[in-house]
Write a protein that binds this DNA or RNA. Sequence first.
DNA 1: TATTGTTATACTCTATAACTATA
DNA 2: TATAGTTATAGAGTATAACAATA
Lengths: 150, 150
Amino acid sequence: MDAVRARQEPIDLGPLPGLLGHLLRRAHGRMQAGFAEATSGRGVTASEFALLCLVEANPGITLGQLAQAAALDKSTLSPAMQRLTERQLVERQPVSGDRRTQALRLSPEGTALLPSLKASVDDYEGRMVSPLSEQERTTLLSLLRKLNGL
Amino acid sequence: MDAVRARQEPIDLGPLPGLLGHLLRRAHGRMQAGFAEATSGRGVTASEFALLCLVEANPGITLGQLAQAAALDKSTLSPAMQRLTERQLVERQPVSGDRRTQALRLSPEGTALLPSLKASVDDYEGRMVSPLSEQERTTLLSLLRKLNGL
DNA sequence: TATTGTTATACTCTATAACTATA
DNA sequence: TATAGTTATAGAGTATAACAATA
């Protein structure tokens, strides 16, 4: 194998800037990292934050309903809810008439924590979206909702 | 803990439809799953596909340059390139004048495989984006590029 | 000293399949 | 039989920090 010169030319991204999958991966990665930084020290991941929001908005929701709302498998949700329950942010109550299921709701601790998390998230979302104008941001959110069937 | 009734009301997504991070996570998840299905059997993941495209577009690129182009850490890329090298899709050549680095390029096998992968990816992207009009798709890609600083 | 790439390690997110308890 | 939730297992994606070789 002969030795060659290293590449000097500017990098060509090829087809990647035209691929939705690639652009979503990059954007998602940046948002994940930004979320972690914005909420560091409070020990709630981005996925867990979404679950807390859903439980808050739907007190008494069951794990199966939550799975559908979050577009996740129940086997993904089950351990996630265990962590949130162990951290005492979410409580489970028995449901009369069906002992297989449990009604989920925020604990007082969860209720107390969520507003400050929401404030941090709003703040970090604003920073991450700052390359876009207000109208572009609105359009982007709208198109992503449509893409997700929401 | 008293037993309560399970929630009957329709699910409320709360603030999530307005959060870019959440919408990106959902969209990215769907795209990942779609990619895996569209390319199943060929043993290349979405990340690996992106790397193959970058190597194809920039023959002789080094790992460090590739990391920058893909917006990934070198420690993420190193094992990924090992897999691609072991699978004989990418070759490494010594670089004259700097024995620390290696020039990357597609192998004949990689060169032969990539077009069919690209065709499958184009096809699956088209299917995933079908809820959007052609113009909406263009707008979405453009906004995501801007968000990513591309 | 600084840089390139590798490795050890760890964390997050997610799913499939098999299982338990209950309906 | 069917459903709600749990568990075992696995795979993908990513990063930080310490390292070896080289510059």
